[in-house]
């Protein structure tokens, strides 16, 4: 190399270095803009967690989804927030739903409830007398009989946009709300062009699209015998919702007996049939939430219902035996050897 050529190259060195540094910054900036984003919030009485992958400014889209969950919970479905349509309906026994949003949820959920005699959308009288979130108390048989009568679906009627409650019937979306909110968040994310996302609202998880790590998302199934966040198995799924109902979190104990927060609408008593948790995987979030609750009440008897609705399930019994749907074979993996698995 001749002397003057070498000089020219050497003059360029600082510029090349600066360009390289600039490129690194630009790359990390763009990468960060498109990287996986996770946002948290609170709604439906539980934590909300949304992870968006492969979208530009995923955090903004995730925030929109959290805002939508808050809106649906606070203004439509909540039975504890004074701003919600359900709260007003329960107070006044009458509600003119001009927007039609609550009506749509009522119709959808009433149709689901009609598939299971032990479920009701008017479950608030039952949750009120058992007061699990207040520490729990055992009601008298007269209180129980009254609550069962009040929880009967015939106390709910709709005429045009007018919704009417009678005989003490009060709506609670406890068995549907988290699933419904999860579904509405997923729709916001899809409309926001997220390529893939995971939405957790309490016990319900919704997944869709590209995980960036293969075809499916691995979702853990809570270990009912261990602390929150610990899972005994995983399932590889995509484009679906998973809901779990169990007796290991919301319950009280008296004289050595556990009373959980899910009630049989026919008897008014907490579900108790050897099952400690039921996970349902289905195409809709409201549906998976409903089915996991119904199957928790029905126990193994609920398998027929899940099959009719084309939903997959994981039933965990108190003796640590697990029943899964045949179609989950290969996708379901035990993470803890203490459990024994059979499929039907």
């Amino acid at each position: 190399m001749r002397g003057d050529e070498l000089k020219t190259v050497k003059k360029l060195v600082p510029f090349i270095c600066i360009a390289a540094i600039f490129a690194v910054f630009l790359f990390s900036f763009v990468k960060d803009m498109y990287s996986e984003k996770t946002l948290y919030g609170f709604a439906c009485g539980s934590e909300v967690k949304i992870t968006v992958s492969g979208a530009k400014n995923g955090d903004k889209i995730a925030q929109k989804a959290i805002d939508e969950i808050n809106r649906v919970d606070s203004y439509v479905l909540s039975d504890t927030k004074k701003t919600s349509a359900v709260y007003i309906l329960n107070e006044q026994n009458e509600y003119d739903d001009r927007s039609g949003e609550l009506l749509e949820y009522i119709q959808k959920c009433s149709e689901m409830v009609s598939k299971c005699d032990k479920m009701t959308l008017l479950s608030k009288p039952l949750t009120d007398i058992w007061a699990i979130s207040d520490g729990g108390r055992i009601p008298s048989s007269a209180q129980l009989a009254d609550a069962v009568k009040a929880a009967d679906m015939k106390n709910l009627s709709v005429s045009g946009s007018k919704i009417t409650l009678s005989n003490g019937g009060k709506i609670s979306f406890g068995a549907f709300g988290k699933g419904a909110c999860c579904e509405s968040a997923v729709n916001v994310l899809k409309n926001g062009n997220a390529k893939g996302a995971v939405v957790t609202v309490g016990g319900t998880v919704g997944v869709f699209g590209d995980s960036g790590k293969g075809e499916s998302f691995t979702v853990g199934v809570r270990d009912p015998f261990k602390n929150a966040g610990e899972y005994f198995a995983t399932v590889d799924v995509n484009d679906c919702y998973l809901s779990t109902s169990g007796d290991y979190e919301k319950y009280f104990e008296k004289d050595g007996k556990r009373y959980c927060h899910i009630f049989d609408a026919e008897t008014g008593l907490p579900a108790d049939n050897g099952v400690t948790s039921v996970t349902v995987i289905s195409k809709g979030g409201t549906e998976s939430d409903f089915l996991s609750t119904a199957m928790f009440i029905l126990g193994e008897g609920g398998i027929d219902l899940a099959k009719r609705e084309n939903a997959e399930f994981i039933i965990v019994k108190k003796d640590k035996s697990v029943i899964i749907s045949k179609s989950l074979e290969g996708k379901f993996k035990l993470a803890d050897g203490d459990f024994s698995v059979s499929s039907v």
Binding site: Y40, F42, E47, K49, T51, V198, T200, G203, T204, V205, V207, S211, F217, T218, V219, G220, V221, R222, D223, P224, G229, E230, Y231, T234, L242, S243, T244, G246, S277, T279
Partner: peptide, 20 residues
């Protein structure tokens, strides 16, 4: 009370979410 506590980090094979 809208408060949560979480240990940071994710092990390689940790699931995306846990239902339950």
């Amino acid at each position: 009370n809208r408060v949560s506590v979480e240990i940071k980090g994710k092990s390689k094979n940790a699931p995306w979410a846990v239902t339950g």
